[in-house]
Design a binder for these strands. Structure first.
Length: 898
RNA sequence: GGGCGCGUAGCUCAGCGGUAGAGCACUGCCUUCACACGGCAGGGGUCACAGGUUCAAACCCUGUCGCGCCCACCA
């Protein structure tokens, strides 16, 4: 019995079964639609004649899992891609992952360590094999997660920075740059990471303020004539000191220049040299010089005549003490860890009474951003890219507007860095990555070529070649992503069609790491910047504004939010909160709110279905006579304009806001309410048919316009509302309707104002919500009378009026509502609190008078009338007239109240 | 030491020359036949501060205070 009743309730008038469930359950529809889209190739429809729109994904690390930053970044990209796909463009979202040198090597090494295996036990070849195995098994989890977010990437052409084709591109770029002398090998100080035992670039070094000490030490002069004071934050490096520097103009030390110091502990004899680096204002004015272990000292050392090859080195690759070339470090120091060596040096100096003073001091200390250990400046041979040369056209491209940053303010950051760019150290002492295509003969002369055979051709048949064991910085390959993924160096159609990309979406934090380098390489190898626009978004922070970090434990897992609220809700949150240039403070409340929005739409669609409103078979708006229908068609057009403008300007927040308000505050709150009398209270059949057609069309437009942000629910409803076969929303057509009916808009605006005012009056006077009252209209113009007549059923329903009359209202207490020229009277004899109504009218009258007075003041100022824009003056006049009239009518109503 | 950004309703943020907006939170009413993840109505802001430009400033300029971020070799 009960079952049968359910079944009946689940059938519609037209015989179709209800397809929209009572509750909106995101998880089911998400899984269903994503695989549907992907399997049917809907992310990449064939559109050979359409204008291309291309986005290259910032490739996530293969080791990565989706975090909020990805959720933001990829939501924005997907919104753009889906929007332009709907607009008919040939939209391509290139996807792939990054091999992430250090990160991946670390993961696999850690895994091996569990089995007590060291990377060196396996040897390079075996180890790299293990990494590939790892990748096959557990790499790329993030690609599954991107799918859960709804990212409509071109998965059929997924790339990896170490796949065959891409690797070939990397090798070619290296060789070409070498041949153009834009890559060279050099011996100099690098930032050495003693944990990973590799060089890293300047950018991978993070300077942190730490509490340290400043040690003042005495260095005796070699001739026994006295001593000189130096101060340092790193006393252990004195074991490799090669000089003491004083300022050439420092009167205190002029006589000492050229003399020698006999270093404590090592007994090394080193010269006192003049160098402007020594600041007479600081400390004693004399500074110890350790060219092999300090960037400043390296330069001082070079100026003092030391060649890099002769600079003393006292550390091995783990920053343990090793003997210097001259053999002067006492044996008991050898093998000591650097900080232990520091303590020992300090203790020994103290014992020898050579420690003058120890100060506490905050020190800027360099740390490896991945390893977290103190970086050691270390003298090694490395490969460098001449970034300064490559930067010149990359700067010009932005300066000339060929590539532009959004928001524009990031251009300053870009220029500032590019103009002061340093040589880029690109070699890494790792095993996982693109091995550098350089071979050395026995004398150490390098031959750079795309293969060993080609290197041999350069070196001659008799040379014994060994390959450079190092690999390239991961960012070196990432820099080629915009063209390497499109088939370069092959001159493919795809490359021609999709390079440069339309827009790059990324966090501002990798402008230097990645954007700048793509600009340089893209221009060098493709002749033009890799994208027209670089959209930089901020960071996703926790609700209190703190940076999310695993160590703080304040990270929010986007997948959990998806489980809880649905991918659409998360995507809407990211879109709505993306205001240009600001970081995002994420709160789950916000996500919940947008889940509610999805539910609202879901229920609106259910309402439509129940009322026989279904999929529209039209792209253009259906013909309409009723004002409500003409109005909603206009509102769709207005919304469309707003959304188009928002996308054009990359105003994601405005896009989200625009569709949100249209759906909730216009379509649901007013349109659906306004058409209820037509559909449910026996309006004419023609009117009902017209309304169903228009409502179905408007709902379709909502689905299309919302789809870029909420792809899942919109696709589900798209099909639930009618049988569209395999015509999916993902490849539907964006509304281009642009008809705006000013007359209908004015009428419905009036209707909305009338209903709102009456409701407000009733509410303020505590009229019971359900009470039906007669409504008397006075002073209405003919036009208003017509509008009232036409809209009578709606007005009665929404104002809870039992009748509407133009007769004079009965005497006695009443609520009076002023809308435009007319006054609407609700008799409340006996019920009304006269004092309350008087207060209400008084408040409204005072407000109108205040505004009228302010406008009057402005209009009576001759300067305003003369100098202000004519539109502004005109508007002030109109507003003044209206406000004055309104105030008069309210006063009249008050007078009537007695 | 340079550079950038921010300070608008209790909270998170739009607005960037014509006398203040949204979402959430808050208050009152409503189990009205799409939706209580809801409906209707409402309260709440000297737009950090001080000067200046302008007929008109939250919005432009200068300075002050507070808060963030980035870059930089003070040994």
């Amino acid at each position: 019995m009960q079952l049968a009743a359910c079944r009946v309730a689940a059938m519609l008038a037209n015989g179709r079964a209800m397809t929209i469930d009572k509750t909106f359950a995101p998880a089911e529809i998400e899984a269903k639609w994503y695989s549907n889209w992907e399997e049917s190739g809907k992310f990449r429809p064939e559109r050979p004649d359409a204008e291309p729109f291309t986005i290259i994904i910032p490739p996530p690390n293969v080791t990565g899992s989706l975090h909020m930053g990805h959720a933001l970044d990829n939501t924005l990209q997907d919104v753009l891609i889906r929007y332009h796909r709907l607009k008919g463009r040939d939209a391509l979202w290139v996807v792939g992952t990054d091999h992430a040198g250090i990160a991946t090597q670390m993961v696999v090494e850690r895994q091996l360590a569990e089995k007590q295996i060291k990377r060196t036990d396996l040897g390079r070849e075996k180890f790299v094999e293990k990494v590939w195995e790892w990748k096959a098994e557990s790499g790329g989890a993030i690609t599954t997660q991107l799918r859960r977010l709804g990212a409509s990437c071109d998965w059929k052409n997924e790339r990896f920075t170490m796949d065959e084709g891409f690797s070939a591109a990397v090798t070619k770029v290296f060789v070409d740059l070498y041949d153009k002398k834009l890559i060279y090998r050099d011996k100099r100080l690098v930032n050495w990471d003693p944990k990973f035992k590799t060089a890293i670039s300047d950018l991978e070094v993070e300077t942190v303020e730490v509490q340290g000490k400043f040690w003042h030490m005495s260095y005796p002069l070699a001739d026994g004539s006295g001593k000189i004071s130096v101060a340092t934050t790193r006393p252990e490096t004195m074991l490799a000191d090669m000089a003491v520097a004083v300022h050439p103009d420092d009167a205190r030390y002029k006589a000492l220049i050229g003399k020698e110091v006999k270093l404590p502990i090592t007994g090394r004899l080193v010269p006192i040299v003049a160098d402007e680096h020594a600041d007479p204002e600081l400390g004693s004015g004399a500074v110890k010089v350790t060219p092999g272990h300090d960037f400043n000292d390296f330069e001082v050392g070079k100026r003092a005549g030391f060649k890099p090859a002769d600079m003393l080195n006292m550390f091995d690759d783990e920053a343990h003490v090793v003997q210097t070339e001259d053999g002067l470090i006492p044996e008991d120091y050898i093998g000591m860890e650097r900080f232990a060596a520091r303590e020992k040096v300090v203790a020994q100096l103290e014992a020898e009474s050579l420690l003058e003073q120890v100060e506490d001091r905050v020190i800027q200390t360099p740390y490896g951003d991945r390893s977290g250990v103190v970086i050691e400046p270390w003298l090694t041979d490395q490969w460098y890219v001449d970034a300064q040369k490559l930067a010149i056209p990359a700067i010009a491209a932005v300066r000339d507007g060929k590539a532009k940053f959004v928001p524009k303010t990031w251009e300053k950051t870009y220029f500032n860095w590019m103009e002061n760019i340093q040589p880029w150290c690109v070699s890494r002492q790792l095993w996982w990555g693109h091995q550098i295509p350089a071979w050395y003969d026995e004398s150490g002369k390098p031959y750079v070529a795309e293969s060993e055979a080609k290197a041999r051709a350069l070196a001659g048949p008799d040379a014994r070649l060994t390959r450079d064991p190092d690999v390239l910085d991961t960012w070196f390959s990432s820099a080629l992503w915009p063209f390497g993924t499109l088939g370069w160096p092959e001159d493919s159609d795809k490359l021609k069609r999709h390079y440069p990309g339309s827009v790059l979406v990324t966090g501002f934090d990798i402008i230097f790491f990645w954007v700048a380098r793509m600009m340089m390489q893209g221009i060098e190898f493709m002749g033009q910047a890799p994208f027209e626009t670089v959209y930089c978004h901020g960071l996703v922070r926790d609700a209190s504004g703190a940076k999310m970090s695993k160590s703080k434990g304040n990270t929010v897992d986007p997948l959990e939010l998806i489980d809880q609220y649905g991918a659409d809700a998360l995507r809407f949150t990211m879109t709505a909160m993306e205001t240009q240039g600001r970081d995002i403070k994420l709160s789950s409340q916000r996500v919940e709110g947008y889940r509610n929005f999805a539910t609202k739409l879901w229920n609106a669609a259910r309402f439509c279905e129940v009322n026989g409103i279904g999929a529209s078979d039209k792209i253009a708006a259906p013909p309409a006579n009723l004002a409500v229908n003409r109005w909603i068609i206009s509102e769709v057009a207005r919304t469309r304009r707003t959304l188009d403008a928002s996308m054009r300007d990359y105003r994601f927040d405005a896009y989200a806001d625009g569709i949100y308000h249209f759906v909730w505050s216009r379509f649901c709150d007013w349109y659906l309410e306004l058409i209820k009398p037509v559909l449910q209270e026996g309006g004419s059949a023609d009117d009902a048919a017209e309304t169903r057609a228009v409502a179905g069309w408007a709902l379709d437009q909502i689905l299309v316009m919302l789809h870029p942000v909420m792809p899942f629910i919109t696709e589900e409803l798209w099909h639930a509302l009618g049988d569209r076969g395999r015509h999916d929303l993902v490849t539907a057509k964006w509304v281009e309707a642009d008809d705006i009916d000013e007359e209908a808009s004015a009428e419905i605006d009036w209707l909305i104002r009338l209903v709102s005012e009456v409701r407000s009056g009733r509410s303020e006077l505590n009229v019971p919500a359900g009470a039906k009252l007669p409504l008397f209209v006075r002073d209405a113009s003919e036009a208003t009378k017509t509008r009232i007549a036409v809209n009578q059923p709606i007005i009665e329903r929404m104002c809870r009026a039992e009748s509407i009359s133009h007769d004079e209202a009965p005497a006695g207490g009443a609520a009076q509502i002023v809308v435009d020229e007319a006054t609407y009277v609700l008799p409340l004899e006996g019920v009304i609190d006269l004092a309350a109504e008087r207060a209400r009218l008084e408040k409204n009258a005072a407000a109108a008078e205040k505004e009228a007075k302010s406008l009057e003041g402005r209009l009576s100022n001759p300067a305003f009338v003369e100098k202000a824009k004519p539109e502004a003056v005109e508007k002030a006049r109109t507003d003044h007239g209206e406000k004055t009239a309104e105030a008069e009518r309210l006063r009249a109503a008050l007078a009537r109240l007695g």
